[in-house]
C-alpha cells in the first residue's frame, strides 16, 4: 500500500478493514488507476482489455482463500464505470471483499459505478462483503451506483453482506441473481442515510432451480431529510423458497418507500415477505434512559445495535 496517501489508506480501512496489505489475492484501485495487485497459484486477476475493470478467476477447488478488491477515490470530479467479473470455480470456498470509499473535498461530483458479475460454479461457496463509505466536506457529491449480478450454478451458495452507513450522497444499487437447483443465496443489507441523501436499493432474484432458496434481509435507518426506496422482488419459478425482510427505522424528516414483490410461477414456490417501518419505540428509549443514557445516547445505541 506504499503508493497510497493517508486519505486513501483511511478509506481502505473503512471499506475493507485493511490496515496493511492483505494476505492472498488483491487488486487496489485508487483514483482510476491500479495501485497494487497480487495473484496466487489459485486466484488470477487480469485487467480487461476492452474496458476498465478486471477478471478474477478462481480455480476449481480453491479453499479458504480470499480476494480483496477495494476502490478508493480521493480526487474531486472523478467519474468512472468499472466492470469486474468473478469466475468462481466449482467446489471452491472463498471470501471476496470489495468496497468503495470516496473522499470528496472539492466542488465537483465524484462517482464510481461498479458493475460486478459473479459466475459461481457448482457447489462453490462464496462469502462476499461490500462496504461503501463517503467522507470529505466539499460541495461535490459522492455518488455510487453499484450493479451486482449473480449467476449461481447447482448446489452453490453465496452469502452477501452489503453495508452503506456513512457519507454516500446518492446511491442506486441493483442486485440481480439467478439461481439453479439447490443454490442458496443469503443477503444482509445495512443502510443508513442522513442529510439530503438518497438511496435506492433494488433486488431481483430469480429462483429457477428446484430446491433453490433466497433470504434477503435489509435493515435501514433514514435520518434528517434523507430518502430510501427499497425494492425487493423474488420470483419463484420452481419448487423453491424465498424470504425477504425490510426492517426500517425512520427519524426526523426521513422518508422510506418499501416495495416488496413476490411472484410465484410454480405451485411449489414458497415465498414470504415481511416489511416494517417505524420510528424508534418510545419504551426502548425509556429503558435505556433508566440505565443512565441520555435520549441521544439511547438513540445511538439502538441504531448501532440495529445496524450491527
Amino acid at each position: 500500500m506504499t503508493q497510497l496517501d493517508e486519505i486513501q489508506k483511511r478509506l481502505m480501512r473503512e471499506v475493507a478493514d485493511l490496515h496493511d496489505i492483505p494476505e492472498g489475492a488483491y487488486n487496489f484501485r485508487a483514483n482510476s488507476a491500479l495501485a497494487g495487485r497480487n495473484t496466487t497459484a489459485n486466484i488470477d486477476i487480469k485487467s480487461k482489455e476492452d474496458k476498465p475493470g478486471i477478471d478474477i478467476i478462481i480455480k476449481e477447488g480453491t479453499k479458504n482463500e480470499s480476494v480483496h478488491i477495494p476502490v478508493v477515490l480521493s480526487q474531486s470530479g472523478l467519474k468512472e464505470t468499472v466492470y469486474n467479473d468473478f469466475y468462481v470455480g466449482d467446489n471452491s470456498d472463498v471470501l471476496i471483499v470489495a468496497g468503495c470509499g470516496i473522499d470528496n473535498c472539492g466542488t465537483q461530483d465524484s462517482e464510481h459505478d461498479g458493475i460486478h458479475r459473479f459466475f459461481v460454479g457448482k457447489n462453490a461457496k462464496v462469502k462476499y462483503v461490500e462496504k461503501h463509505y463517503g467522507s470529505g466536506d466539499g460541495k461535490g457529491k459522492r455518488i455510487l451506483n453499484p450493479v451486482t449480478e449473480v449467476y449461481m450454478d447447482e448446489g452453490s451458495s453465496m452469502e452477501m453482506e452489503m453495508v452503506q452507513i456513512k457519507g454516500v450522497d446518492s446511491t442506486e444499487r441493483t442486485t440481480k441473481a439467478e439461481l439453479k437447483a439447490d443454490a442458496k443465496l443469503v443477503v444482509h443489507e445495512r443502510l443508513m442515510t442522513h442529510g439530503e441523501q438518497k438511496a435506492l436499493s433494488i433486488y431481483k432474484v430469480d429462483l429457477n432451480g428446484k430446491g433453490s432458496s433466497a433470504d434477503i434481509v435489509s435493515r435501514s435507518v433514514a435520518r434528517d431529510n434523507s430518502y430510501q426506496k427499497l425494492d425487493m422482488c423474488i420470483l419463484g419459478n420452481e419448487e423453491c423458497s424465498g424470504h425477504t425482510e425490510c426492517d426500517s427505522i425512520i427519524m426526523d424528516n426521513g422518508r422510506i418507500l418499501a416495495v416488496p414483490s413476490l411472484e410465484a410461477n410454480s405451485v411449489d414456490a414458497m415465498l414470504v415477505h415481511e416489511a416494517a417501518i417505524g420510528k424508534i419505540a418510545g419504551d426502548q428509549l425509556t429503558k435505556l434512559m433508566t440505565l443512565g443514557l441520555t435520549e441521544q445516547e439511547a438513540e445511538e445505541q439502538i441504531i448501532n445495535g440495529f445496524l450491527k
Partner: peptide
C-alpha cells in the same frame, strides 16, 4: 431490542 445483545445491555447498565 432488535440488534442489542444481552452483553450490550449489561454493559450499558
Amino acid at each position: 431490542f432488535k440488534g442489542l445483545t444481552v452483553l450490550d445491555l449489561l454493559r450499558i447498565a
